[in-house]
Amino acid sequence: MFSNGEKRIDEVFARLRNRREKGLITYIMAGDPELGTTERLAPLLAEAGADIIEIGVPFSDPLADGPVIQAASERALRNGVTIGKVLASMQTIRAHMQVPVILMTYYNPIYQYGIERFLDDANEVEVDGLLVPDLPLEESEFLRQQASNRGLAFIPFLAPTSSPTRIAATAMVAQGFIYCISVTGVTGPRDHLPISTAGFLGTVRRYTNKPLAVGFGVSGPEQARMVSAYADAVVVGSAITNILSRGNPSKLPLAQVTTFVRMLKEALMA
């Protein structure tokens, strides 16, 4: 089956360009605190203005994540969430929502599930793209090839430490967009983003026409607006997870989350 997730992501960025808007990519951890919440929340995020939904697969050893996402991952794992259950949940989410979905998962869960089986099943439930934070260019060839054969976008990362050679090589294989890490560090909201982010994105631009999304550290609308001056989209994850974690499981602050997402999106328009 060929799903053309890459094309659906391209269409989002084309539409954004026409409207002179910047994109909002919202990240939530699947199964935080249980999968029912994720299934309800994803469509609400889309309604509130998210252009792409990024869904995290929990992992016991998330070494690229800061305390907020680590805690979300632990909550999900305590509830028995697995990569297979996340894929099953996607079916429900897809029934209520049209915006592209990308899965963010560390490599070991994919590897144990079976790379080709995982890609087939992800395709089946209309996942559009993949982010694998511990799979750099050098190790990702097989997964990239297999994803591409099925029309799933493999979205690479670039970091402020990436050399020009690596930026050029990454730009060559990028599908959908490039995820640019704003700071050298792990995920998590920060009060200030480094000034050098503008320079870093400028460098990447010299090597590619692909859309650039900036993530890691974006904590609110004002920051989103600032970094969006140099990017095509902004990824917000820990800040959303923080709001969600403040409620109690019986009464989750979903309205607060959607209000926050609306504010983020407004900051990216006009």
């Binding site: 070494l63 690229a64 490599y107 934070p133 511990d134 799979l135 750099p136 260019l137 050098e138 190790e139 690479p156 990362f157 670039l158 970091a159 402020p160 430490t161 990436s162 050399s163 690596r166 990454t170 890490i181 050298t184 560090g185």
Partner: peptide, 23 residues
């Protein structure tokens, strides 16, 4: 050259660490 012992080894790390590892 890529740090592999047969299928084992390699560099399964975030992109941020790739250049430091090469250095």
């Amino acid at each position: 050259e890529q740090g592999h012992f047969g299928v084992f080894g390699g560099r399964y790390v975030p992109e941020t660490l790739m250049t430091p590892l090469l250095e």
